[in-house]
Design a protein around this nucleic acid. Structure first.
Lengths: 357, 357
DNA sequence: GTGAAAGCGCTAACAG
DNA sequence: CTGTTAGCGCTTTCAC
């Protein structure tokens, strides 16, 4: 019979040291691949470490080193597919660089975000990647001022001049709009989220610019804000429902011949209303989505939409953060990554439309 | 002019102590709401702490307390909407209980999972919620044996008898199948993922059991495994494509009158093939999905599907884990939460079908 | 009620 | 090359 099982306390450097008749610190150096250790000692130490299953205690290590080798990720809603991909790419990159990742979900709530900053401070993360709620930012200032570098992702907080990496939403919206116009649409509509965030604002700007460049005027009622709950990550994001209800009220008198939507869910709700009204897509109304969700290509009418470079955004954000950790001096960098218009049947190429005529 | 800005070192207990002429440990107790401190001292300490923006150092605290107040979440793929919701619910619950959450993404790779266990051990998490890859589990044994309680989620590793909480996939599949049969389908097909995981196996069992209970025989070619890549969380999960290709080869001779699919993406791919073949849903072929993704209700033919209780699974998992942290003695508990069949047009109620006849 | 001392596990100085 | 000393920031004895 050996010892009883029971989770015995985890081995420490001292266990190895006493077992081998060495000092704790020699063991530390042997394991740390420092040079000032004889080959034989190192071998013995490593053997013993392996034998007893020694795992370094990151807590103690971090305390003395002054770095937890941990980064924070503060995100609003993992159920948004774009953010889900962002999480994956960020986690991958962070881990590849030897850091751990602390996850905080804010659910678009400022209070949650404030608590998240507390957690970041307490945990003494080395830095954080943040999708800000964008309603207040004093708590972020506090984090930054206490020496924790921040990279804002997808949405910026210009007041704090931190690094930022996002998507060129304006451009994506510009291209989608221009594409509809090139396809022959003239009476356009923009269906946007009713949220006070820059992504929405940028898409509106892109829409307006594309219209202006085509010599089309934009009246106020061509830009519609769909009543949008700041949606709950615990429930499924029922945005199609909101767009569906809204679109029902939208098409009472006449109809647009092109609709740019701010996300694929809106397009989904809109498509249903159009089907109910016997309006054909794209011949009566051409539609673009935003996001290129996995289902977009497989709808009855495959959706023309703007594909977001999620992985690239995430990777870039982590890289920026790690650079910043090495040299804090440089000026903040703002990076916008260009999304890609994916053209499918809901708003096909000009030729395809022409054939229909 | 005050001091230059620059991220000065974060305040410690000693800063408060010296400022107030107290000892470090009096300050500690004052902040920790211990009783053995005079009211006036406590007030002074708290005031000073607030003034200089003191934030306790979790690292140091954890080191002496022997608990990092951190739980790990090891998950395969955040881009799977079910897991995305799981992440949200788990994070919420974990944070509500005063713990932090360390996130590890494995992308269905055993190697990543093994590295994840190393990270868990180094970080000295108090416990972990794990969606296991289910190919090997020696590394999990090691974690458990070093005293870190594990709760497996969605998939079990029975060899380790840890706590487990999942979805009753078999039942969901049974209900979906029975529903199709009740609607009049007789020539049924099951389209499943080709992955060696228990969730898939359970759904197959449920299908077979429902068929048997209805007195229907199941030949081997009625259970089809769609070639499924262990899909990449960095790319979008292109499972519709796989199901689409597969379904094209499926309907060459005759067609089933009911198809149970193992996930909503398969249903999407299948729907397209059916449309291409001019087979009507549900009158020619009734279909059920699995997962109730946000788009399911908004397809041209709204999808009857099995809704997964993601939030409940996540919350339960965390609660189990925290209980286990308090009393490690009890026997492992396995909990299956029942999913809900959501009936829509792709496989309507019996009456609706009857009317069509 | 408060302070002094010790230690969590580890690493960075410095001796030898 | 190796050991000793010191200390990261905090909490828990135990005196006073």
């Amino acid at each position: 019979m050996t010892e009883a099982q029971g989770p015995r306390p985890r081995p420490t450097l001292r266990d190895i040291a006493t077992a081998l008749g060495l000092s704790v610190n020699t063991v530390s150096r042997a394991l740390g691949d420092k040079d000032s250790v004889s080959a034989s000692t190192r071998a013995a130490v490593q053997a013993e470490a392996a034998r007893i299953g020694y795992v370094p205690n990151t807590l103690a290590r971090s305390l003395v080193l002054g770095s937890a080798m941990t980064l924070g990720l503060v995100i609003t809603n993992p159920s948004n597919p774009f953010y889900a991909q962002l999480i994956s790419s960020i986690e991958l990159r962070v881990r590849a660089q030897g850091y751990s990742l602390l996850l905080l979900v804010t659910d678009e709530s400022v209070e949650n975000e404030q608590r998240a900053t507390e957690a970041l401070l307490r945990s003494a993360v080395d830095g954080a990647v943040v999708v800000p709620v964008q309603a207040e930012w004093d708590h972020w200032r506090r984090v930054r001022d206490s020496g924790i570098p921040l990279v804002f992702v997808n949405r910026d907080v210009p007041e704090l001049d931190c690094d930022m990496v996002g998507v060129d939403y304006e451009r994506g919206s510009y291209e989608a709009t221009s594409h509809l116009i090139a396809g022959g649409a003239r009476r356009l509509l923009l269906l946007e989220e009713d949220l006070p965030i820059t992504t929405t604002a940028d898409r509106i700007t892109g829409f307006r610019r594309a219209m202006a460049d085509a010599g089309l005027k934009v009246s106020d009622d061509q830009v519609r804000a769909v009543p949008t709950k700041r949606y709950d990550s615990l429930a499924l994001p029922w945005q199609p429902e909101e767009a569906y209800r809204f679109a029902q009220t939208l098409l009472t008198d006449g109809h647009p011949d092109g609709v740019v939507t701010g996300n694929d869910y809106f397009a989904l709700g809109l498509l249903r209303v159009l089907a109910e009204r016997d309006l054909a897509v794209p011949s009566d109304v051409a539609i673009t989505g935003y996001g290129d969700h996995p289902y977009a290509a497989y709808l009855q009418t495959p959706l023309t939409t703007v594909r977001l470079p999620a992985a690239e955004v995430g990777t870039t954000a982590v890289d920026l953060l790690l650079q910043r950790l090495r040299s804090s001096g440089e000026r903040p960098r703002k990076t916008l990554i260009r999304p890609e218009l994916v053209i499918r049947a809901s708003a096909p190429h000009r030729q395809a439309i022409t054939i229909d005529r």
